[in-house]
Amino acid sequence: MQPVNISDLPDYPLSCNDRLDSHFFMAWERRRWLASGMRLNATPECRALYFDLINIAYDNSPVGTLPMDQNILAKLLMVDSGHFGSLCKLDYGPLYKWEPCRCDNGDIRLMHPMVLRSLSEAMARREDHRARNDAANSAKRLQRLRITVSGYHADLAKNDAAIRWMDEWLVKEGCEYRGAAWIERGMQAWSNHIFDLGRAGGAFPQKGA
């Protein structure tokens, strides 16, 4: 590790608020690892510590980073600090390709391009999964609302715009359980909405006309 100009450091793209708490595993590119310079050139001990540090980084904040202090890293690895320092001086030491970066909280920490790539892909998959779940939940919620409204007004239940508007209105109003009272309020709100649109467009006579 050499002294660096802080202004020249790259900004770490993940913030302290980015979490993968529900992930109890990490993606590991087996073939990439088997052909990597680290695996082919490092000692068995350095390879083991290198892999340990990657796992440790997943539980640090920001996720995927490590503290700069080698004494702290040695404690995390449960190895002698002096011995760890000597290993880090090797061309293929435990901190191979770990480099300083600036984090969103102002800290200077270590990042690794492979770890960052793996985390970015994991977060992208999580967001895709969340989007699919949200879409599925929304579709089910709209279908339930349509069925309920059909019990009051069959033609209104066939109006896609009305169902979507009432759904958004119920969500905005903080309705947690869509009982009869809420459904009736939603239908009345839709009726008022249509009336206001018509009045604004001149479809209804104004007072004094």
Rank of each mutant, 00 (worst) to 15 (best):
Y96G: 01
G174H: 03
W98I: 03
N55F: 13
L53I: 02
G82K: 05
A161V: 15
A189T: 00
V115D: 01
D104G: 03
L170N: 02
E173L: 13
I147E: 14
L77P: 04
K75R: 14
A74I: 05
L170E: 06
E127F: 12
N159P: 00
K89D: 15
R178T: 11
L110T: 04
V63L: 04
A131S: 13
N60M: 05
N133G: 15
I54L: 01
H129K: 13
N55G: 14
A57M: 08
N159R: 02
N105S: 09
D80V: 11
I147G: 04
G151A: 11
G85F: 07
N60E: 13
G93S: 04
T65N: 02
S81V: 13
W190C: 05
A74G: 07
D167V: 07
M123K: 07
V79G: 02
L77Y: 04
T65S: 06
G64I: 00
N137Q: 15
K97R: 13
N159Q: 11
K172A: 15
Q188K: 09
G93N: 04
S138E: 14
L156M: 10
S150V: 10
Y58L: 12
A157I: 04
I56W: 01
C103V: 04
C101F: 00
R102L: 08
H129M: 15
P113Y: 12
N133S: 14
S118F: 03
C175D: 03
M187E: 01
A124Y: 13
A74Y: 00
N105Y: 08
S81T: 09
A131Q: 07
S118D: 06
M68Y: 08
L90K: 10
I72F: 12
G179P: 01
C101S: 00
L77K: 01
R146Y: 01
L145T: 03
A154Q: 13
L156E: 05
T148K: 02
E176L: 11
N105M: 01
C175G: 01
G93L: 07
D69F: 03
S61Y: 09
C101P: 08
R132V: 14
A180D: 15
Q143G: 10
P67R: 03
R185W: 06
N60S: 00
R141D: 10
M187G: 03
M123A: 02
R178Q: 08
D59Y: 08
M187F: 14
E99S: 12
H83R: 14
L87H: 07
L119K: 02
R125Q: 10
H129S: 07
M114S: 09
E184C: 05
Y96Q: 09
I163N: 05
E168C: 06
